[in-house]
Design a protein around this nucleic acid. Structure first.
Lengths: 226, 226, 226, 226
DNA sequence: GATGAATGAGTTTTCATTCAT
DNA sequence: AATGAATGAAAACTCATTCAT
């Protein structure tokens, strides 16, 4: 399995070293689930595998999660939160809604290149857990709205805009993760999405390229091919 | 379960009544699988259910499909082909690539309204079987290319365009099928997708509305709520 | 089914009453498998029968053995080890290699008379699991080698000697178990095997008869017919 | 799969070209069964595989054999008869019982070297079909008896002698087929068996080597290793 | 809280056999 | 005689979940 990019590694790990033991165990289990889901897909993953990966037993796993669906949901939420937290600094440095939207797109697309297995797992989990898209969608919605206020985005419906952004990015992630995408796929997708939101072609392309600088590694990843 | 729209019913049924027996059985099994997948989701569906739904035994099912993945793939391909066949007449009446792309989008989005269960099954199956998107993607690619030749579409990469079209439409279908979408969602999505492909906002909206007339029932369906 | 001779009963039972639970379950399953294999033949035995015979469920059985072949192998090894353990005292009392070889032959041949079903099961299992003959063969090889050192056995190849001993004894067991053998078949086979190893006819016969005394019940068993 | 030695190829084929059609089909099916059993083992072979290998359908197979056991038995008998027929000329040229016994041993052991898969199949089938050993045993018994009359063999029991001969040879075949036997294993086994029947060591060895000349290819096969 | 053995219902899959054509 | 599609009972194996320790 492709190693998780530094950007995400230890997503579920305690930030405060003095976390309560129960919480530490819980996070270790989520971390293990992420690893197992990434390598086998979540449908094929078993509770015993997750427990074993965490160095624990199924009993302990069930002490923390009542059912398999629960740990899947926990994984989805953990991923969504971590993604936001890790990018919040960079996000705050951008004041234009269009740039924020673009950064979000590039971010996820970049991760698909860095960790294809992880990306496929994410798509898997997202499809199974509505909570995931709701969480992520809330941020996207805020950024889109900001762009509308700033007159850079012009849309008929926010829901449609979200479907455009999330749908295109997820499909783009799949193409990249499966090795079907040409170089600079992330930038191409991002620029198209911006155009779809009403940004003229040239600025759209420029913004897509500009925010790439805020993504660790930039566009480089896409150039290496697979 | 929502009944299949007349448009799709009997997708897998023999056109020639004197089809070979083996072929008739095969189509009956695919038809049964569509029904079972629609009502339970394909992951939850069992081979026994499919066989029973077709009025046959698991043995017969395995006589035709070596594994569960095989019948899922057969279903995916059958759906993709039927969708194309059923809309080929209307499609042929449109000479502009942009209109053809728009019609494809509206078509799938309209079906999500007509048969939410069927749409969710389709999304499920599409995620599991690359064959589906490959089949559909070939048509979309041809239409996009035509639009490019006609200077109405301007893109950097065909693959990215496909991801935009298919990703947005699939996400839109999900919103519609889950009842999360406002009225006229299909048209909104379609117009945005066209903009993403480089069509200016106003023509995009006009095209989206225009091709709706080619979809049975038009935009009306979206207004009825769920 | 012929009851197991006292000599072998409970082969797989714990010697120490305070064995770990997992180990106790494992031995109970092996014991059950021996019983089922003996009454139905191992090819016809099902995992459910074995589990039921042990008063457990298939899940538990699979918890301990990954596949049917695994429990067959475990049975084979358990039998081979038990046979050696149970006869080790008597074996140690014999210093001549030829006597030890003879005793081994008589032992298995005697058991075929005592428990025909058990013997047929053993032959079945031996054919399916190389581990059995490897385990038993190691002892035979040591005894043959000892006989060679003592200049009572003279052979060209150890492997050939093992094939002679094991092949003849197994075929003899089959004849006896199927009720096709005349009285004193075990002694006749044993004497011939010794001759094959280079022991002159008269001593061979004497040794075969002598070691019979070390087998519980002696040659008597063969006279009762079936 | 190792090809069948020329010696056995087409064992089941019609000798008279004008055989009735039913008989020709039957022999073709037996031939196909031999091939399938050799490559997969008879327990793992399916009726559909056998039919397909013969270029026919299961229906036809069942027209000729009422059950799987029946075709297994037919295969066993066909093999036994062919083996005898093919060696009858050479056998008739030997007047001493010991030589005939030796030739029979060498023959089967040589085949194990030439066609390991075929040999393992034979052992498989022999274990399942008593008729096989009965057929072969009748010839061995006659040769042993001849040797007794000629005062070259001295045994206590014919049944025991048969167990010695057949058991040792079958075990030897297994060793050879599995690649566990050293060079000249066939000769070593044969010589030992003769000793077991009362032939002194030196003549036993000489006879074993002599009859090897009557086997196509002679001892050469054993030297090549595997 | 953790353990880990046991559970057992549920699934996929296999294949000998039948039978209408 | 041959076909080959259909059968269906049975088997192996899985895994989420429970619970006594």
């Amino acid at each position: 399995m492709t190693p998780l990019p530094r950007f995400l590694a230890g997503a579920a790990e305690p930030e405060r070293p003095r976390l309560r033991k129960r919480e530490r165990t819980r996070l270790a289990l989520i971390d293990a689930a992420v690893r197992v889901f990434s390598s086998r897909g979540f449908a094929a993953a078993t509770m015993q595998e997750i427990a074993a990966e965490a160095g624990m037993t199924t009993g302990t796993l069930y002490n923390h999660f009542d059912a398999k669906a629960d740990i899947v949901a926990a994984v989805a939420i953990a991923i969504a939160q971590t993604m936001q937290e890790r990018s919040s600094a960079r996000r705050d440095s951008l004041s234009r809604g269009v740039e924020r939207v673009a950064m979000g797109c590039q971010h996820y697309l970049w991760l698909a290149k860095q960790s294809p297995d992880w990306a496929l797992m994410l798509l898997d989990v997202a499809a199974a857990t509505p909570a995931f898209l709701e969480t992520v969608g809330a941020y996207v919605r805020a950024d889109v709205r900001r762009g509308v206020r700033q007159k850079e985005i012009e849309i008929e419906s926010e829901t449609a805009a979200l479907d455009l952004v999330c749908g295109s990015v997820m499909q783009g992630m799949r193409s990249i993760a499966l090795g079907l995408a040409p170089p600079r796929h992330g930038t191409a997708i991002t620029a198209m999405v911006l155009r779809g939101l009403g940004v003229p072609a040239e600025p759209a392309r420029k913004i897509a390229r500009k925010v790439l600088a805020t993504v660790p590694g930039g566009d480089a990843g896409y150039r290496r091919g697979r």
